[in-house]
Amino acid sequence: MSGLDLGAPASRATRVSRALPFPAGAGMARWVIARNAMAFRHGWVALVTGFAEPVFYLFSLGVGIGALVHSVRTDGGSEVPYAVFVAPALLASSAMNGAVMDSTFNVFFKLRYAKLYDSMLATPLGPRDIAVGEIGWALLRGALYSAAFLAVALLAGVVTSWWALLALPAAVLIGLAFAAVGMFATTYMTSWQHFDYITLAIQPMFLFSATFFPLSTYPEGIQWLVQATPLYHGVALERGLMLGEVSWALAGHTAYLVVLGVIGALGAARRIERLLLT
């Protein structure tokens, strides 16, 4: 060996991780994030599209349809212009979309075709580092898009409360829940056709999670169904914050998303271990 100090950086982290009932990791998830940032520098055009989509929706729906609808009575009971009503939902859905794209298509390619995780697992990195790193990267990207969207929403005058400062961390939380579950689901996919199931899950959520009209417009029997879906909780959380309708219900939405994120992250790490470390 030369003077390079090897093995040492991993040792303390491995002692800790061995004590936990989780798939192994070496506490080096940040290098998975660094790898993605490095690759991203070669494909920064994706950054523009990820930001543009929700902004296009905001102007098309908020301004266009808003001219016809004028105002909406929210589930919190206040009367607001349509653009103000729809902006938080667009923030939540774009956080979902970005996280799902990153954690399904990109992860599937790396897992099945590029064999990127196989070459990572030949190093001290463990399955948990990969799961945490990939999800962490999806969150970083999501935070960037969400911050840009919030800035545009602020300039467009559709942000009405100081609570909106918390809309950014809330968007990151939505990203966490969807990225974790998305990556977990991706480990079960074996062909590109399986992505139709993702679309099948995402599309109805985007349209019907009280995104474009309040929950109260649904018949009672359907309302519980809507409330069971994760995007509903994301939309309700963002809407509560951006309109300043803050109540304990927001804690419930937050808890739902946190639980989903933790289950997804653990499941994803466990599955990568099963698939690649056999």
């Binding site: 090897l6 040792s11 790898r35 070669h42 064999k115």
Partner: peptide
């Protein structure tokens, strides 16, 4: 992890990172 840190593994397929 500590053992892998001291190994140099040269896989059957190249498995290089083609995005970099």
């Amino acid at each position: 992890p500590a053992i892998r840190a001291r190994l140099g593994s040269c896989p059957q397929a190249d498995m290089l990172d083609e995005e970099l």
